[in-house]
Structures are given as structure tokens and as C-alpha cells.
């Protein structure tokens, strides 16, 4: 602190005696408005900004959304299951047993009987499975339902690996070209009448 000169003491005393303007209410209104923003009270004052959703509001809303999503997913999956089974039965009720079962396990047990789960097993069939061209699949090819007409499986239709040229390696031709099986057939030319 410095030692004040006489005139400084006079100025200080004069400034302390300055008349105070009557602005207390106006200034308080501004302070209160700012406090309502920065330090809102818990007494529910009229100027308080509305509070956002808290507690149950957030968690309840989120929980309802999750539950609704789970129900919708469950129902849609169930509906798809029912439609798939129904359509398979309608389209080719007799071929399900013979064609598709043989397609799934042609090497191990070609004579086994299929079950109702056969259509769903198509999706996990390994494309590396090599099926001979003379297998029953190709014999019964027209019996398979056309893919584009299917309303059951939608965009998630499993590929028909057995009919696709890309998925199975082309069979290597054996023998001499130009000679067919009929050429090896032994047919008696003429009956010796003599």
C-alpha cells in the first residue's frame, strides 16, 4: 500500500460519497435471469428452463424401443419360418424327400429319407461338394421350384449350388472325343440265317 497524498485522500472520500443510482431492481432482474441459466434452483421457479427427461424418462424410453424391436424381430422370423414350411409343402410336397435330401448328402447316404428341416439345410451346403452329373439331382432338375418365383425366401435365398455352373467344377471328360457310349454298344448286326 502506498501513502496517499492529501488530494488523493480527498478524491477517495468524495468518490465514496457518490450518490448511488436506484437501479437495484433492474440489475437484480438481469442477475436473476442469468442465474436461472447458470444456477437453476430446485424450487420450480417460473423462470426456470424446462428440464429434459431424466431417470425413468431416458431408461424407460430406451427400454421400450429395445423391447419393441425384439418383438418385431421375433414375429418376423416366426412368420418367415411358417411361410417357408408352407410354401415348400405347397410347391413340391413329394419332392422334398427325394430331391433335396439327396442333394444335401449325396455321397454318404443317398438313400436316406429327408425331414422337414431340409429347406433350411440348403444354406449350409458346402459348395465344394462335387456331385456327379448323372446324379439324381440333374434327373429331377425341373422339379425344383424356380428361384425368381419364390416369395418365401426373398433376397436371402440360398444359392442352388447344384444347378449353378459356377459352383461345381466342370467334369473332366473321359475317353476319346467323338465316341459315345452307343459306340461301345454291342448290337448284333444281322442274324445269321444260315
Amino acid at each position: 500500500m502506498i501513502k496517499k497524498q492529501t488530494y488523493e485522500v480527498t478524491i477517495t472520500s468524495k468518490l465514496e460519497a457518490l450518490p448511488i443510482p436506484d437501479m437495484a431492481d433492474a440489475i437484480w432482474t438481469r442477475i436473476e435471469a442469468q442465474l436461472d441459466i447458470d444456477l437453476p434452483t430446485n424450487d420450480g421457479g417460473g423462470n426456470n428452463p424446462p428440464s429434459g427427461p431424466t431417470g425413468f424418462g431416458w431408461y424407460g424410453g430406451a427400454g421400450l424401443i429395445v423391447i419393441a424391436a425384439a418383438i418385431i424381430t421375433f414375429l418376423s422370423v416366426k412368420k418367415d419360418d411358417q411361410k417357408t414350411e408352407t410354401t415348400v409343402d405347397k410347391v413340391n410336397p413329394s419332392k422334398v424327400d427325394s430331391t433335396e435330401t439327396r442333394a444335401l448328402a449325396p455321397a454318404k447316404n443317398p438313400d436316406s429319407k429327408s425331414t422337414a428341416t431340409a429347406p433350411f439345410d440348403i444354406g449350409i451346403v458346402d459348395s465344394s461338394v462335387v456331385v456327379p452329373t448323372d446324379s439324381a439331382i440333374f434327373v429331377h432338375e425341373p422339379a425344383l421350384p424356380p428361384i425368381k418365383d419364390s416369395v418365401i425366401l426373398g433376397n436371402d435365398q440360398p444359392k442352388n449350388y447344384f444347378l449353378s455352373k459356377d459352383s461345381t467344377p466342370p467334369k473332366k471328360l473321359r475317353g476319346v472325343r467323338g465316341i459315345t457310349d452307343s459306340d461301345y454298344r454291342i448290337v448284333p448286326k444281322q442274324k445269321d440265317s444260315t
Binding site: 457518490l18 448511488i20 437501479m23 437495484a24 442477475i31 442465474l35 444456477l39 434452483t41 424450487d43 421457479g45
Partner: peptide
């Protein structure tokens, strides 16, 4: 954080702070 108390303190010190 009582608004009434804040107003009371403000008015108590208004003249002093305004000077």
C-alpha cells in the same frame, strides 16, 4: 442456491458494490 437468499445478499451489498 436459494434465490431469496441470493436476492437478500445482493440487496445487502448493493450500495457498497455499486460505489
Amino acid at each position: 442456491n436459494e434465490r431469496k437468499a441470493q436476492e437478500g445478499l445482493y440487496r445487502e451489498f448493493y450500495g457498497f458494490a455499486m460505489s
